[in-house]
Design a protein around this nucleic acid. Structure first.
Lengths: 216, 216
DNA sequence: GCTATATGTATACCAGGTGCAGAAATCTCC
DNA sequence: GGAGATTTCTGCACCTGGTATACATATAGC
């Protein structure tokens, strides 16, 4: 049997195809009719799979949508670990965010391709999907804290505090861009503002909030 | 009819009693058997109320537990608004957190009364309750951002970024205390460490993360 | 007391998710 | 290439959270 890549067995390949088929059927249906308007039974039917099998591949309905974003959970942690010598974590993360903006990485919220825009809107309009996203945020915090501890020789508490601040700020920047772009602002038009905001945010992270004014 | 407090009508009082009865029945059952092991039907029966009525008082099962914490959502915002003249938001918030620790306010995680401890453990062990708590965090961020904007003459972006950082840090501190106390450390024993950690955290917020070390 | 209205109830229903028993496909080894 | 062990898939029944409908009951205000 002259297969091109004989490494993974038939079973494994079939699993991957089934996984992809379910995911695609789900996204297609959700984009067309809305997340809450489509039942998992319909998704299973469209993917030509039983409901029981669907739940063997995806633990919950929400995962049909968000499993594609799972990689981003450890993105910041990887950036910190991979930073060049003599570079602080914040510098590396700022450069990474700016690169993401330049490349219109959807994770920055600065991407207005219709497909992505529609998906983003759907997620934001669906409370259970938003809740599911929040768990990614938690995971990102934990991963980043560990990366800081291991590569920056930072005490436990400081690492955790720094991580939650950084992730919260990144999340907030992305939310802002997403809100503006889904509201109708073209990504290219928003770009300059997004860069300025990101730089302001990282400056705030570096220098602290000590300049918040007292009550007059 | 010589009522003690004739102000609210009978209807209103009955509603309050029903609300309390449902809540108490729920907490009692949940603490005894666990959140997922008790169905809302059982709670309704214990409170001598129909399932439909229960959902008229509480929009979801999780709210049977977390509605008691709803006040805390705007707590930081209120503190910032009520701060004395010539006081920065961060100073006011730090003093408030330290006061909470002194008073063993459950929201700080530094309370080891068995009842509260058990409830805390239950919440932390139940994903859907944790998710519900995360929404409080969002609400706290929004409220704090608005308070900063209105009382500290802070630009929109700065207010939002400061708010998410502050809330994230407070949350992290509370989580840490909660973890230690639920693990068995007495609150009085943890107190000194909790104070030191809080002061460290606020110092970090004020001075920024600029001292995170570069890669060697 | 009488009536409009707010509140509660019973019932049926929908959707997400799980347990189970057995069928069907894949793998392994001869 | 086939037999048996193993994994995966399926169909079905079932549970639970949550909602819609239609009807009963209690309260408020006259």
């Amino acid at each position: 049997m002259g297969v091109v890549d004989g490494k993974p067995g038939l079973r494994e390949r079939k699993k991957q195809r089934t996984h992809a088929a379910i995911s695609e059927a789900a996204i297609t249906l959700f984009l067309e009719h809305g997340f809450n308007q489509v039942s998992v039974a319909q998704v299973a039917e469209a993917a030509e799979v039983s409901k029981r099998t669907l739940f063997a591949y995806f633990p919950a309905k929400e995962d049909l949508v968000v499993h594609r974003l799972a990689d981003h959970e450890t993105e910041s942690a990887r950036v910190v670990r991979a930073r060049p010598p003599r570079t602080t974590p914040l510098t590396a993360l700022r450069e990474h965010v700016l690169k993401g903006l330049r490349e219109r990485d959807p994770i920055t919220g600065l991407n207005d391709h219709p497909q992505i825009l529609k998906l983003t809107r759907m997620i934001l309009d669906t409370p259970s999907l938003v809740a599911r996203m929040a768990r990614f945020k938690d995971g990102a915090e934990r991963a980043l804290a560990q990366a800081l501890r291991e590569t920056a020789d930072t005490p436990e508490l400081t690492a955790r505090l720094a991580a939650v601040q950084i992730v919260a700020v990144q999340w907030s920047l992305a939310q802002d861009n997403t809100a503006r772009v889904t509201y109708g602002e073209p990504a290219d038009e928003r770009y300059a503002g997004a860069v300025a905001d990101a730089e302001h945010a990282f400056a705030l992270l570096e220098n602290g909030l000590r300049h918040l004014p007292p009550r007059k």
